[in-house]
């Protein structure tokens, strides 16, 4: 088998090398890839869409249909994690800690209820005393990370950035909360319902903008048709449309990041984990 694998790898490598013989030189300005469509984009984008960032314009407008499905792929990934990993069975063993003394209680019967005040906290099996420095630093840092994420989303059409990147940054701020505190703190703040609704809503904003354009009499995703709906300069409407879909992408990516994280670290039980 190893030998066959080696032969196949050599053949594929040989094919790829053979294919490169006729490719244009690296960075050749006369190559088809840099002349056929690129010229059109470079000459017309700013005039047609009023977006200075050409990459965003191609991504979210000229090829916005692709990007919509890329967002749907992200949504699929989150849903796949839920479908395959989520485990609704209650866990047998539960642990509680008496906060003032640090004494631990171990319940083996899931039906047992602990009737006590705030001095007991529900805790993970592999509990590590949380570090005050880490907690404090993260607590201060998280809001700034989130503001930066919003900045990246909002500036997608002016500078490098956009919904995917901003969403990942925002999602990672929530994951940082789970790492520095514990998973329960995160799950209490962003529930499963919240996350799944936002994941669907994010993509729905994208598709919805496209459908709105269709209802206004244009093609699907033709943001130019949204002009009568918004009190803005009609020339600038495509840039606004792109901002709208970037926001949708950002929301969906943020929610899916957290869904994937929670399901993987807690093995689908949403109770404890990294």
């Amino acid at each position: 088998m190893k030998f066959f694998g080696f032969v196949i790898v050599c053949l594929t490598g040989g094919l790829l090398l053979y294919g490169t013989m006729d490719l244009p030189d690296w960075g050749d300005p006369g190559s088809p890839a840099s002349t056929h469509l690129s010229d059109y984009y470079i000459e017309h984008i700013v005039e047609e869409t009023q977006v200075p960032n050409l990459v965003t314009a191609v991504l979210a407008d000229y090829r916005g249909y692709d990007t919509m499905f890329e967002t749907a792929v992200v949504f699929c990934a989150g849903l796949a994690c839920f479908l395959l990993l989520r485990d609704f069975r209650p866990k047998k063993d539960r642990y509680f800690r008496h906060v003032p003394t640090g004494v631990m209680l171990h319940f083996k019967n899931p039906q047992t209820r602990l009737i006590a005040g705030n001095e007991f906290e529900h805790m993970d099996k592999d509990w590590v005393p949380s570090d005050m420095i880490i907690k404090t630093v993260c607590r201060i840092l998280i809001p700034f990370i989130q503001i930066y994420a919003l900045y990246v989303v909002a500036h997608g059409d002016f500078s490098p950035g956009g919904g995917f990147q901003g969403g990942v940054i925002f999602g990672s701020s929530l994951i940082l909360m789970a790492i520095s505190y514990n998973l329960k703190t995160l799950v209490k703040r962003v529930t499963e319902k919240f996350l799944s609704v936002f994941a669907a809503l994010g993509v729905l904003i994208y598709v919805g903008l496209g459908v709105a354009a269709m209802l206004m009499g244009g093609h699907f995703l033709d943001y130019g048709m949204l002009a009568p709906l918004l009190p803005s300069d009609p020339g600038h409407i495509r840039a606004l449309g792109m901002l709208g879909v970037e926001i949708g992408v950002g929301i969906a990516v943020m929610a899916v990041m957290v869904i994937i994280y929670i399901n993987i670290v807690s093995e689908g039980r949403h109770d404890e984990g990294l």
Binding site: L16, Y18, G19, H36
Partner: peptide, 26 residues
């Protein structure tokens, strides 16, 4: 890389002119 386009109909037109290319075969 060889045609500079992703649209099927457009690629088909460009490919007519470069049929001997090894990159197209690959």
């Amino acid at each position: 890389i060889t045609t500079g386009s992703l649209n099927m109909a457009d690629v088909a037109v460009i490919l007519k002119g470069i049929q001997g290319s090894s990159a197209v075969l690959t």
